[in-house]
């Protein structure tokens, strides 16, 4: 523990922070309301680089206590080589004050958290989805988001149903996705039937 980290942790504890350790890395959990003040302080104190902001969904983890989501702010002090993980716990539907107005680097990171977990950031100048299409319903990195063979729902009722999709690919069905499959190349459904075995007489 360096002097920088000791001072930072002591200051964050006056803001209501709770300190924990995991594999030698210090984490400080803060109330959401204090995040702007904490970031301003840490940036001045020497944590000059905002490495990352990301979310974790603890739903379904029986040993986890407290709010469903954690948003982690990964800060790095370049001169001291010190890293600090700042955490904010939020329930589903709660929002966090955005730090983008004070630190541009947070722009994409907060948008990614919003896109993947549906956690909103108050005061973000441009809180749009970052990666997924506009009409995708749901938040992919939440633990209750369906994967695999479950149909993927889109906003206007359109959805990707794996079985129909495969049928469309084989040209057996128009497919609800609009993908016409073999028919597009001029292959009719008769032609995609497996050819009958004529034997090896010839």
């Amino acid at each position: 523990m360096s002097a920088l980290k000791d001072a930072a942790v002591a200051h964050l504890e006056t803001l209501g922070g709770q300190t924990s350790e995991s594999f030698g890395q210090t984490h400080v959990t803060l109330p959401a309301a204090q995040i702007r003040e904490a970031i301003t302080y840490l940036r001045k104190a020497g944590y000059e680089q905002l490495s990352d902001i990301f979310g974790i969904d603890y739903q379904g983890d029986p040993e986890h206590q407290g709010a469903r989501f954690h948003v982690v702010y990964n800060l790095y002090a370049i001169n001291e080589g010190e890293r600090l993980m700042l955490r904010v716990a939020v329930q589903d539907g709660e929002s966090i004050p955005s730090i983008t107005p004070q630190w541009t680097a947070a722009g994409f990171m907060e948008r990614e958290v919003y896109d993947m977990f549906g956690i909103e950031f108050d005061g973000h100048p441009d809180l749009r989805k970052l990666i997924t299409p506009e009409d995708l319903d749901g938040f992919p990195l939440r633990k209750d988001f369906p994967i695999g063979e479950s149909p993927t729902l889109f906003g206007d009722g359109r959805f990707l149903d794996p079985a129909t999709f495969r049928a469309g690919m084989l040209g057996q069905d128009q497919g609800r996705t609009g993908w016409v499959g073999g028919a597009r190349k001029g292959v009719t459904s008769e032609q995609t039937e497996p050819a009958s075995d004529t034997g090896g007489d010839a």
Binding site: I56, D57, D61, M109, E112
Partner: peptide, 11 residues
């Protein structure tokens, strides 16, 4: 339980 890649290109 959760994998988060801190990718340089995005940022």
């Amino acid at each position: 339980y959760r994998v988060k890649a801190r990718v340089p290109s995005l940022i």
